[in-house]
Design a protein around this nucleic acid. Structure first.
Lengths: 216, 216
DNA sequence: TGCTCGATAATTTGATCAAAAGTGCCGTGA
DNA sequence: TCACGGCACTTTTGATCAAATTATCGAGCA
């Protein structure tokens, strides 16, 4: 019965749910995560919750403390440096590789997502901004045939999500700037180099913004 | 009873065991991995085996097929390109960052490990080569205070382990060259730039070697 | 021979339970 | 007041079982 429910296993559902919670700033750095708490949240047993937590821990989205507790890691300048280095390698490459595959439909979708980003910024909607910004970037990255790079990028976004939430909450969304327009224009022209540069600028901008939350 | 056994949970033990099996070429690309098979291998229940598999899957060491089967992924040139790009970003950075922390004891240990590498090459001992080579690199990488980069590097090594085994088995160990001596000398001189360059050369060399197994 | 269909076997998935380990609170005694 | 120890509660961990899903293999048929 209930043939319409997803074919995904439960642990996949929990994984995706928690992943979005982290990416879109619904959790706070330092916040503890318990197996049973997750199971209750989704209304399922502890077994799939455990598997989802292991997966997120392996991706660096969660950390296991010295005892056996699990928590969302806090940001430090050292961590931020490492993340920026790899983001600046991986994401411009993904954007450049996407140029060869981008279609008119993709351009339209990217423009739609970018307008959602702008709306969220104007409206001060932090969660909406984080989600639209993520979807813009990863719609583009999905076009590139580069699963390894994309998964590294996702892992890095998971690490900055909570901090981005904090900094947006502190300084508001008004100061947010992005280079999505330049990227879209470069994509439309099929200019790989310009696409890469727009993405590089976008990342530098965002990481500089996050810098303000880094402790020590 | 057995108070001397490790304080690690079972799933951690299984994870480390399978990780070494993959890193050191004890598994073949395409080889299926079953949850019960792992449990039997270690002599434990299926629950911790599942958690270990989820973790390795999240790290890209294993892949889930279209059905629910788990397997060791095969290498392709596209995957190899992506891995090389990130390795060339992350590992020279780790090596350079390690320079500031390296002690005389570390130098001695690196020389010992490098001699193990040479012995394994001379003796045609593939497993010994893979293990000593890994320990050389990651002893160095552990010195750098850069857990995020190191974990990315480990994830990438997990992806090349099975292929490295295949190519060594096919062409033997005689053709293996490395730049460990140059790296050690640069470390001894405290020359960060030279250390970075030696590591870059070492990676290029190794990835070129693996290229020979890539399909399509 | 080559093919489909169906039954059996193997595997994953998720719930549940018991044991181990950790946390925090509260009262006693100096 | 404060240190210390006991006790209850929470959480993780691993085993086990049932259900669901998938693979495998063989019989029947054109």
């Amino acid at each position: 019965m209930t043939v319409l429910i997803s074919k995904k296993p439960e642990h996949e559902t929990i994984y995706l749910r928690v992943k979005e919670m982290i990416l879109f700033g619904e959790v706070v750095p330092g916040q503890p995560v318990t197996i049973h708490g997750l199971a209750d949240l989704i209304g399922t047993g502890v077994t799939p919750a455990r598997e989802a937590i292991r997966r997120l821990t392996a991706e660096g989205a969660l950390v296991t403390l010295e005892n056996r507790r699990i928590a969302v890691p806090a940001m430090t300048t050292r961590r931020l440096q490492q993340i920026e280095l790899v983001r600046l390698t991986v994401e411009p490459e993904l954007a450049e590789a996407a140029v060869a595959y981008v279609s008119q439909n993709d351009i339209n979708e990217l423009e739609r997502l970018d307008s959602l980003v702008d709306d969220a910024i104007k409206g001060g909607d932090i969660r909406g901004y984080l989600e639209a910004n993520y979807r813009f970037h990863f719609h583009l990255y999905h076009l590139a045939d580069a699963g390894i790079l994309r998964r590294i990028a996702e892992s890095l976004w998971l690490r900055v999500g909570p901090s981005l939430r904090v900094v947006c909450g502190r300084y508001g969304t008004a100061n947010l700037v992005d280079h999505h327009r330049a990227a879209i224009q470069a994509l439309r022209q099929g200019d790989a180099q310009k696409t890469r540069e727009a993405m590089t600028q976008d990342i530098r901008q965002g990481m500089g913004f996050i810098q303000q939350t880094a402790t020590d």
